[in-house]
Amino acid sequence: MRAAVLEAHGEPLEIADIDRPTADPDGVVIETEACGICRSDWHAWQGDWGWLGLEAQPGQVLGHEPAGRVVEVGENVENVAEGDHVAVPFNLGDGSCPECRRGHSNTCENVMPLGFVEQAPGAFAEELHVPVADHNAVHLPDGVSSTDMAGLGCRFMTSFHALAHRADVGAGDWVAVHGCGGVGLSAVHIADALGANVVAVDLQEEKLEKAKSLGAVETVDASDTDDVPDAVKALAGGGTQVSVDALGIETTCQNSVLSLGNRGQHVQIGLTTQDEQGMVSLPTDAMVMQEIEFIGSLGMPPTRYDEIFRLVASGKLDPSAVVSETVGLDDVPEKLDAMTDYETVGIPVIDEF
């Protein structure tokens, strides 16, 4: 089968023929109908996250936002059948550790990050193996296309978990979103659906215009603003209740914290780059004096996907609105390269393999 394979960090992915996967007793194989191209794939391509033990190695098939149809089922699988239409979370859980049993499989003690480690080859491929399928394969509602749901496996559900579960977003609250890539635009759309007033912050006018179309009531062009936190505070009447760093660089993290009012909540979604390597300085005295909370948020437990599906069914959420374009597998190297200079808008999705 065809797949996009990491040859060397920073070098174009190779579109190669590799062996198709086979289902282990607890797993399934899906035919990949769509897969988002995410900035996390760019990080893997660059060789980032060695400080987390997640530096993708040569030979790794990348891709972690898939949806497709089940074509092979392991003998022990009970709840997934051939032909089922499923999505797959990027943080695969084992379904049995204490975290998984408590409903927090996004922080599974034996997590397998899809597309980042050898034991979990990714979805930039015609077919994909899903381990512990009864736990990790999420059935999609009738009438939902794989393309529309491809971004659900990472960026959209990551933003949903951050704002609906980790932060305390109420109707009428001000929420700032720093960085309007795919996860940031998803956060804008979700915060708007939760009744918040959203301030979107980015360096590019095209992304700010997209944020407006997804519900942002105010925008801040960071390329034309001397003091981003002051600008956000002026728009939000003195400071936001919630602020999100959706990029993961030192500047956006610090700006997010400094945009908050008293007892505000900073939510960290973006993971850092080689420049920060996981360490960012913070205005700790201001955080103490204002009683600011710093909240980390990773992925989303697949057992809670139904919350998103209900909001989609009601028309309050539309994950497809964040999908910017569909491309072929051969286009993946070019799209990853474009992310180096933040040239992509929204979520590009592979729908031809």
Results as ranks from 00 to 15, higher is better:
282 L>F: 11
282 L>E: 13
283 P>F: 05
284 T>F: 13
285 D>P: 00
286 A>D: 15
286 A>F: 12
287 M>Q: 08
287 M>I: 09
287 M>N: 02
287 M>P: 00
288 V>I: 08
288 V>E: 07
288 V>C: 07
289 M>R: 15
289 M>F: 09
289 M>A: 07
289 M>N: 09
290 Q>I: 01
290 Q>F: 11
292 I>K: 04
292 I>P: 00
293 E>I: 00
293 E>K: 11
293 E>D: 14
294 F>Q: 06
294 F>I: 09
295 I>Y: 01
295 I>M: 03
295 I>H: 03
296 G>A: 10
297 S>M: 06
298 L>Q: 10
298 L>A: 06
299 G>N: 10
299 G>A: 09
300 M>A: 11
300 M>H: 12
301 P>Y: 05
301 P>M: 07
301 P>E: 04
302 P>H: 07
303 T>F: 06
304 R>L: 14
304 R>F: 08
305 Y>A: 11
305 Y>V: 06
305 Y>T: 12
306 D>E: 15
307 E>I: 05
308 I>K: 03
308 I>C: 08
308 I>E: 00
308 I>R: 04
309 F>W: 14
309 F>L: 03
309 F>M: 03
310 R>C: 06
310 R>K: 14
310 R>A: 15
310 R>T: 14
311 L>I: 03
312 V>Y: 01
313 A>E: 15
313 A>D: 15
314 S>K: 10
314 S>P: 02
314 S>T: 06
315 G>R: 05
316 K>F: 08
316 K>N: 12
317 L>K: 01
317 L>I: 05
317 L>H: 02
318 D>M: 01
319 P>L: 06
320 S>R: 15
320 S>F: 01
320 S>A: 15
321 A>S: 12
321 A>N: 04
321 A>R: 07
322 V>G: 00
323 V>I: 06
323 V>C: 09
324 S>Q: 04
324 S>C: 11
325 E>V: 12
325 E>W: 02
325 E>A: 13
325 E>P: 01
326 T>R: 11
327 V>I: 15
327 V>Y: 13
327 V>D: 02
327 V>H: 10
327 V>L: 13
328 G>N: 09
328 G>V: 10
329 L>R: 01
329 L>I: 15
329 L>F: 02
329 L>D: 00
330 D>W: 04
332 V>N: 01
333 P>E: 14
333 P>I: 14
334 E>A: 14
334 E>K: 12
335 K>H: 10
335 K>W: 05
335 K>T: 14
335 K>I: 11
336 L>R: 07
336 L>K: 04
336 L>Q: 05
338 A>Q: 13
338 A>Y: 03
338 A>M: 13
